[in-house]
Amino acid sequence: MRYISYILALLAGAALSFEGAIYGELGKTIGKLETSFYNFFIGSIILGLLWLFFGKGKFSYIVEAPKWTLLGGVLGVVYLTSIVISVPFVGVGITMVAVIIGQLVMSIVIEHYGWLGSKKSRVNKEKIFAVISMIIALILVY
């Protein structure tokens, strides 16, 4: 069953690339921040519908959850805004490399210490090798 999660994550990444390429075009017409707003706004509507018909969880958990666990949306916006600001200064290539390395480093730290409620899982040789291979791949791509 575990490998299904890997396939989902692969598909998520694929969706992100298609999304980025398509939104790049949209951004030329309506502006970058406006494009993100469009994405979040219409996305909320789609998810509202999905939730109405297929939601099996507990949305009301919002009121009892620790407040910091509600910050996912803001973090996403910070990420997006940092890219929008950075690209004109240093270009897409360097921006993507910096973002992805930031993402990898933070993942290791979060998981090693079990921060932000994630399951604690020790860093081991294999994980370090995986990150190094990713960094090599990144440098080769850009």
Binding site: G72, Y79, S86, A98, V99, L116
Partner: peptide, 17 residues
Amino acid sequence: ILFTFLGGLTLSAQSAV
């Protein structure tokens, strides 16, 4: 570049949160 690196940190934090 440093600023963008921080952007990457927030994306990982988002998935954990």
